[in-house]
Computed example of a mutant assay.
Amino acid sequence: MALSAGDTIPDVTLMTMTADGPTPVQSSSVLGSGTVVLFGVPGAFTPACSDNHLPGYVLRADDLKAKGVDTVACIAVNDAFVMNAWGEARETGDTVLMLADGNADFAKAAGLELDGSGFGLGTRSQRYAAIIKDGVVTEIGVEDVPTNVTVSGVESVLEKL
């Protein structure tokens, strides 16, 4: 069953890049406090993700903060090195926390996995955006078509905040 409003976020180990290299973090720690906007993408550096999804959150980070968002996080089924390189290429800086769900543990626990094996991608995350308050999902929009960025885009999230 897919994550929905009223659900507590899954608590799994994710990876993020720090000055010391790839570092494990618990999803409950990095996503479970304050108001968090979490958006999931099928893959770093893919066209819709790189050209449409991530850039909107970087450009509108101040607007999200003005609406009370404490953390903006991006999660994908990629490793921490790829997520870090993608963040650097898209100049996310400190505006977006880049989270690696390398084994799709979060995607599976949230019921938001996507079978990309037909495209040689294996298990990936569906494209979605969630508003989370103190670890509980208050809003979530999951795209019907993985290449669309409508209900998961920053404009949609801003309207719901």
Score class of each variant (00 low, 15 high):
residue 4 S to C: 10
residue 79 D to S: 11
residue 111 G to D: 03
residue 70 D to R: 08
residue 91 E to D: 14
residue 87 G to R: 06
residue 9 I to L: 10
residue 29 S to M: 10
residue 129 A to D: 02
residue 147 T to G: 07
residue 45 F to E: 05
residue 133 K to R: 15
residue 4 S to Y: 00
residue 65 K to W: 08
residue 81 F to L: 15
residue 59 L to R: 12
residue 4 S to K: 15
residue 48 A to R: 04
residue 128 Y to N: 04
residue 143 E to Y: 11
residue 124 R to K: 09
residue 77 V to G: 06
residue 7 D to R: 10
residue 7 D to E: 10
residue 125 S to C: 12
residue 100 A to Y: 07
residue 7 D to A: 12
residue 23 T to W: 03
residue 2 A to Q: 11
residue 35 T to D: 12
residue 116 G to K: 03
residue 94 D to G: 15
residue 144 D to N: 14
residue 12 V to H: 09
residue 4 S to M: 11
residue 3 L to Q: 07
residue 44 A to L: 12
residue 7 D to I: 06
residue 64 L to K: 11
residue 103 N to M: 11
residue 39 F to R: 00
residue 84 N to P: 02
residue 65 K to V: 14
residue 63 D to K: 10
residue 40 G to T: 00
residue 63 D to H: 10
residue 68 G to S: 14
residue 134 D to H: 12
residue 114 L to V: 00
residue 60 R to I: 00
residue 87 G to A: 13
residue 31 L to D: 05
residue 10 P to Q: 13
residue 125 S to V: 01
residue 147 T to S: 15
residue 78 N to S: 13
residue 159 E to Y: 01
residue 53 H to F: 09
residue 140 I to R: 01
residue 90 R to Q: 14
residue 44 A to H: 07
residue 107 A to L: 05
residue 137 V to D: 05
residue 107 A to H: 02
residue 158 L to S: 07
residue 98 M to E: 06
residue 143 E to M: 09
residue 78 N to H: 11
residue 47 P to L: 07
residue 19 A to E: 15
residue 151 V to W: 03
residue 88 E to Q: 15
residue 84 N to M: 14
residue 90 R to W: 01
residue 59 L to S: 15
residue 110 A to I: 00
residue 19 A to N: 15
residue 137 V to I: 12
residue 109 A to G: 09
residue 34 G to C: 09
residue 70 D to E: 07
residue 5 A to C: 05
residue 140 I to H: 00
residue 75 I to F: 11
residue 38 L to T: 02
residue 78 N to K: 12
residue 157 V to L: 01
residue 161 L to A: 08
residue 159 E to G: 13
residue 137 V to G: 00
residue 58 V to L: 08
residue 121 L to R: 07
residue 39 F to G: 00
residue 83 M to H: 06
residue 66 A to N: 12
residue 60 R to N: 15
residue 159 E to T: 13
residue 127 R to K: 08
residue 138 T to I: 11
residue 131 I to R: 10
residue 30 V to W: 11
residue 147 T to E: 14
residue 139 E to L: 01
residue 141 G to A: 08
residue 36 V to P: 03
residue 82 V to P: 10
residue 160 K to Q: 14
residue 106 F to M: 05
residue 61 A to D: 12
residue 57 Y to L: 09
residue 87 G to S: 13
residue 71 T to I: 15
residue 15 M to C: 02
residue 110 A to Q: 05
residue 141 G to V: 05
residue 47 P to C: 07
residue 11 D to M: 08
residue 58 V to Q: 10
residue 5 A to F: 03
